[in-house]
Design a protein around this nucleic acid. Sequence first.
DNA 1: GCCAACGTTGGC
DNA 2: GCCAACGTTGGC
Length: 140
Amino acid sequence: MNKPGKQYWLLKSEPSTYSWDDLMATGHTWWDGVRNHQAKRNLMAMQVGDEALFYHSVHGKCVVGRCLISDPHQPDTTAEAGQSWVAVGVKPVTAFKTPVTLEQIKTHPDLKEIALVRQSRLSVVPLSQKEFKTIEALSQ
DNA sequence: GCCAACGTTGGC
DNA sequence: GCCAACGTTGGC
């Protein structure tokens, strides 16, 4: 079920730019356009088969679904010449029946240390397995 | 190398 | 619309 070393992530997107529905419509996307070094390190640490939650920032402020890292990191084709940013492939797995709001996350005792809140501007955020499972359970 | 100014992100 | 947090840029 859970292969060893599997990691968990949260991917942020402003839905007016790219939404969960956009991902569902195509079944696959390249998570590109990330221009932050810490986020880049997280992308490079991802392995195929890692799981990620999809978070709608700004308009939404909730986790809306679960997805899968389907392709390892590779050069971001949208990067300007001379700059080396990376992208990973992402596929949707399940849409949350009930989106999990930022407010729920902030008030849940098991999510006090979540990087989503501690580092609100980071767009590719690592999650512990417990944090991942806790948020997933809230979506039922 | 320091730091002020400015731009961006994202919550409120 | 405002502001806090951060990152980047450029003058010195």
